[in-house]
Design a binder for these strands. Structure first.
Lengths: 182, 182
DNA sequence: CCTTGCTATGCAACTGGTTGCATAGCAAGA
DNA sequence: TCTTGCTATGCAACCAGTTGCATAGCAAGG
């Protein structure tokens, strides 16, 4: 399970409430790890019981109070030991691939609109990633100052998202060309 | 849920027992949808109760008997209606991306060996895909005969796997270069 | 004042998926 | 004969994740 660890990373980058975490999981972290707010609240509670995170009540102006969480020593240690474990070869789940192979026994041409819809979703996400990259990672001249690990690593993960979306768009074009031959 | 549908597609391509399905889910179908044998047996039982599949006992020489499943009309209809639903924008889960961002708060260089391990797993899988492609999809001259949908669609899904592995390898090289700057 | 809508937190029930364990047929080899 | 190993099927317990629902503070606008 890596939700705990994703939360730890997110809280290390920036402490925040369950609600704020849920919003981050709709963007940023959420590009490669999804979670709903119910899940986040439940896991945060468990993590607090385990001493991985600590919370404090924060009053806000014009809004309900929030509970701001930050990473405790035990949490930092737990993250560290997880980082040093080898494991997890990742398992893939691709509904669309199942659909494409299934289309052979139904109506191949009928899948075109569905694939086009997916293609649009991926181009949208690519556009979004590229805008984020331009905003958050403008090119800096190498003036000899040491690189910032947090920033560089966030950037390389984002580049992974960009590469993934580009690959998917190219493949979906291949799929569309194939479907249109029937 | 698409496990039912993945099983239907697999049984349409070739009827088989739960055990045989489990083996297919370790290759072929398993490249984009994973399932353990327990899960497959449980779901097959439910599908049989629902009339989606039918089974018959098959005696084998030198082996225990098996129950061979094939798709019933209701199952074919269920698959068809699923294929015509729009839905599912796919959610991603990338442990490695979490680890990479987390490494900023631990030991970036310590992640190199882990990333190299993943890179090796992906090159292995790519080699495996390419061997399968050469074996199952040799180039055929276009002699005007109509293309075989089942075959062409299996091929385009496999090309997706190849594209994915190539993208991952290139990205992991990017990650390694980034990690090595610290 | 009342509705709408966003912030903020949470419970309960369910479903899908994983893990550990168990059983049994049969073949091959020590 | 006994062990090892592959084929073949399955139960039970657990855990992670989803869905539906509920509550409450506060602001803005009709």
């Amino acid at each position: 399970m890596a939700l705990e660890h994703a939360i730890l990373v997110s809280l290390l980058e920036q402490p925040g409430s369950g609600y704020e975490l849920a919003r981050r999981f709709e963007r940023s972290i959420g590009y490669f790890w999804t979670a709903t707010h119910q899940q986040i609240y439940r896991v945060l509670k468990r993590m607090e019981n385990d001493g991985w995170v600590a919370s404090r009540e924060v009053s806000q102006h014009g809004r309900p109070d929030k509970k701001e969480y930050s990473v405790a020593d035990l949490g930092h240690a737990a993250l560290s030991s997880w980082l040093h474990e080898p494991i997890e070869p990742e398992s893939v789940r691709h509904d669309l691939a199942v659909k494409i192979r299934g289309a052979a026994f139904d109506d191949p041409a009928g899948l075109v609109r569905e694939v086009e819809r997916h293609r649009r979703a991926h181009t949208d996400r690519l556009t979004h990633y590229l805008a984020g990259e331009e905003r958050d990672f403008p090119p800096v001249p190498d003036d000899g100052t040491p690189p910032d690990a947090e920033r560089e690593l966030q950037h390389v993960v984002l580049r992974g998202g960009v590469a993934y979306e580009r690959m998917m768009i190219a493949w979906l074009d291949d799929v569309l060309a194939t479907l249109r031959r029937f």
